Computed example of a mutant assay.
Amino acid sequence: MNKHIEEVLNSQLKKEASSSQFYLAMASWAETNGLNGTAKFLYRHSDEERMHMLKLVKFINERGGKAIIPALEQPPVSFDSVLNVFELLLEHELGVTDSINNVVDICLKEKDYTTYNFMQWYVSEQLEEEALARTILDKLRMIGNDKGGLYLFDRDLENSAIQVENAAAGAAQ
């Protein structure tokens, strides 16, 4: 594996691991604030980010590079509101998108088409992540300070998390 590509992939691996920890901190905050649906959504999101990291670990190692498992910084322990959580989530995802686009650009410059093709999955995934975060933010802004609306929003997130879990369990059988 090209050393420059290996370095940028390891950098991306750290971003995915940090994302997992960031969303885990958000989930814990939500859970301790009575937002069980939001917590379920964020726990699942944290798991997804960890899988994104593992996918990079395996790819780097399989290509003859060496995946470096990073030390991570402490994520925040509290947030101002659910709206703040999802604003930070979108901001974070936009940064991850920039990073992925940078990796793709370097792959093209280095003519590493195998890694370029591998990274296309991440490009598509980021489109979904950003769209989901924007949709959630739109709903939260519509709700505003309405506690009843927040209750229903949280319940909807919990129900969607349960549906995803049930679909995954059915697919595994």
Rank of each mutant, 00 (worst) to 15 (best):
D80S: 12
Q12E: 06
R155T: 14
L24Q: 13
I100C: 12
G65R: 00
N102T: 09
A169L: 15
S11E: 13
Q120V: 04
V82H: 05
L89W: 08
H92Q: 06
N84R: 13
G37K: 04
W29Q: 02
N36E: 15
L108W: 09
L42A: 08
E31S: 13
E7G: 05
L90T: 08
L94D: 10
D47E: 15
S81V: 06
A17F: 02
L150S: 05
F153K: 02
L94K: 12
S20Q: 03
S78N: 12
A131E: 15
A171L: 09
A27V: 13
L42V: 13
S160T: 09
F86P: 04
K55N: 12
S46P: 00
W29I: 00
M1E: 13
L42E: 06
K15T: 08
A25E: 05
D80G: 08
F79A: 09
T135K: 13
E6M: 03
E48I: 01
K111F: 13
T135N: 14
S81R: 04
I162H: 10
K58C: 11
P70K: 01
H92D: 07
A30S: 02
F22G: 10
F59W: 12
V85D: 11
G34L: 11
Y23T: 05
L127Y: 14
N10R: 01
A161W: 06
W121H: 02
I106M: 13
E129Y: 00
G149S: 07
I5E: 00
L56V: 03
Q120D: 01
Q173N: 14
I68Y: 09
L90K: 07
Q74V: 13
A172Y: 14
A27C: 10
R155H: 13
F59K: 08
E87G: 05
L88K: 14
N36P: 12
L35D: 03
V8S: 04
E125P: 00
A71Y: 03
V8T: 02
L150A: 01
L35E: 07
S78H: 11
A30P: 00
Y122S: 03
G65E: 02
N10S: 00
I106R: 10
L13S: 00
E110F: 07
A133V: 02
P76Y: 11
S46T: 03
L83R: 07
A30V: 03
R141G: 03
